[in-house]
Amino acid sequence: MSVDSMFVHKMWNDHELSKMVEGGIPYPMLSDGGGKIGTLYGIYDDEAGIETRGRFIIDPDGNVQGFEVLTPPVGRNVEESIRQIQAFQLVRNSKGTEATPSGWKPGKMTLKPGPALVGKVWEVWKTKMAFDK
């Protein structure tokens, strides 16, 4: 979503993005003229008249699970967004019985929060796991 019109989105997709992504952009490119929605989400820069790089992960109940906002010159890390979605999905599927520690990736160890884990995280989770590849 940006403040550009849907017509400009079409031109950008057809003339540039479709050369980067085969078949063009697969998801809807939304238009937010005037930044009304961006203002609602707290990421619209009214001095510059643009949206900053806000990214919101919204779960199937319509609740915001996470967000990240960057100033324009720095791009996002898509892999990190996907990792977060995978983590939120795991937690949701476990109905809150599992949690993903720092550095978690799919297939890695999760934590089972409960009285038995209090003061014992150090036994199962090591600092180097925050940097696991």
């Binding site: 540039e16 900053t52 324009p72 967004s81």
Partner: peptide, 11 residues
């Protein structure tokens, strides 16, 4: 699941 992304502008 929805990922809603804002960005500064086309092009």
């Amino acid at each position: 699941w929805v990922v809603l992304c804002f960005y500064p502008g086309d092009f």
